[in-house]
Design a protein around this nucleic acid. Sequence first.
DNA 1: CGAAACCTTGACTTTAATCAAGGTACGTGG
DNA 2: CCACGTACCTTGATTAAAGTCAAGGTTTCG
Lengths: 222, 222
Amino acid sequence: MIIIQEAESARRNGSSSSLVTFAKGTPIYREGDTSHYWYEVVSGIVRTCRFLADGHRQLTGFYYAGEVFGIEDDSHGETAEAVTDVFIRRHERTADTLEDVDSAASKSHRLALQRALQAARDCIFLFGHKTALARVAAFLIAMTERMHARGDVELPMSRSDIADHLGLTIHTVSRTMSDLARQGLIALDGPKSLRILDGARLRALAGDDIVGNGKRNPALVS
Amino acid sequence: MIIIQEAESARRNGSSSSLVTFAKGTPIYREGDTSHYWYEVVSGIVRTCRFLADGHRQLTGFYYAGEVFGIEDDSHGETAEAVTDVFIRRHERTADTLEDVDSAASKSHRLALQRALQAARDCIFLFGHKTALARVAAFLIAMTERMHARGDVELPMSRSDIADHLGLTIHTVSRTMSDLARQGLIALDGPKSLRILDGARLRALAGDDIVGNGKRNPALVS
DNA sequence: CGAAACCTTGACTTTAATCAAGGTACGTGG
DNA sequence: CCACGTACCTTGATTAAAGTCAAGGTTTCG
């Protein structure tokens, strides 16, 4: 990890942030580490995960440019690693910054918490009663939307990352992607590059429309 | 729903709370409802859930006496229902109470957010790569600990609730419970009442010990 | 150019869902 | 108090889905 810049932003709150960089595959913090900082992706992609004794790994999220992670109090409940080479803005977490609700840091922290909770619940929802096909379809849609892509999608993470995120094996992920390609819903230009050919049918497969109040998942809206 | 008491607690913040009661099976709020309040269980049990178009339901949590739910900003992302007859303390959510970080309300709100995030992530973890046996075992352990029970456990929720919570069918939940009983790990005194006979083996089955930093899930500690 | 890591695919096995039936507990009304 | 109905729970047989085992192909990077 290399510190690029020490910025004394928001000086009145006593909070400071620095721009740091991590090479592909290296850890940013580890499960159990004390939360000295919280983080914001400047460029590249980050994954957060936990490890089980039986060797399994569960990815709890991917974070793209502009997104925030590592916002737990006290100690980090998960490990964060760089999926690609990344630039990260690292924000100091002092008693001050968290207590002063007017600070930009505290506001964005609260918002990040809300968003993290929403994301975690969406994930639970996806895991509950969904087939491999639905999970992969939902994943592809989510990634497309987060990259603001239109048709062309880059998947910077490995099949193993995707599998550990969706609660599947790499085999099932691979097979499912091939199935989607065979059915003409997507085109695989390579393992990490694909095009979405039939977004509507893909969304239908993901099938995450919610009953009640006429409220629907934004993923459904074309 | 019956309002029992209107309390003007924490008057200086302009926040107030009331004690209300709901009959078994009735909704406390619905998915999409504007978040006018947040809630605290006084007695009884509450479940939160979401519904899919295909008829499936996903329970995102059970809440026991003393626990807090419905803490999302803006609008509720899930429905809350009474599992048993319940008494609920309903807290008003005004711009004031949330901005004033010194208020007890805001502090407990933030803590509740953190805890909700932790709970959601534990749930994801459970769902990722776990067999029906491990899920049911983990569920029984979690329920035992939350009720501060020692051996004897009451399960006030139906098999259907448990199934929708664990991402299984009622059949699999029922079979798995019977298996555990057959193996002598638990004794079923009735569908809603059981005793844990071999907590150690049950924990081993749940297998949620985490690798790294020597930090382990509290559920593992006997 | 070669090695290592990663991805895809096929055959088989395991797990949980589905289909189907019967049992149990509880509440209501006769 | 008992009979009946309903909702809930359990269990068995069968089917579908994803994991495991195994092998071969591709990409990437030194």
